[in-house]
Amino acid sequence: MPELYLRLLDRVLTPILLVLAAYLFLRGHNEPGGGFIAGLAAASAIQLQILSLGDEPVRRRYARFLHPMAGLGLFIALLSAILGILRGGYFSSLWGKVQLGEVELELGTPLLFDLGVFLIVFSVIVSFLLALSRQDEGKTP
């Protein structure tokens, strides 16, 4: 049963990959990473699930979120651009500082934009993967 190992791998690897994606996303502004890369990493986590569990369970779990997610991503990216009108103009950035105990975080609209990028890359790639891994395709149109 080689699938057993894949299933085990899925249990262990998928969360690791998703955490890795989140990590890559958060550090993106200061070190290699960012929305594009994090989106790809998260998508490969889902790909692993498709390989191990088959496409139907994954589809049941995620399919209905994908298109809204892509739309949400575009909306968030656009929103961050429009917020810039408050200061300077379209697509100019806003920044603020947040004190969390010892750590000082810098937050700004470009991070919001990056979140939009992440959502779009993730949802687009996963929707392609799901579309192409449809098992019954070609038999019953």
Binding site: F36, L40, F128, L132, E137, P141
Partner: peptide, 28 residues
């Protein structure tokens, strides 16, 4: 190049969809 890589992947995926769809039609 970073965006180009991701976009070209999207385009290749789209093309794969086209080819697979065409294959279905030709079979029919």
């Amino acid at each position: 190049v970073l965006t180009a890589i991701v976009i070209s992947f999207g385009i290749v995926a789209f093309l794969v969809v086209l080819v697979s769809r065409r294959n279905m039609l030709v079979e029919q």
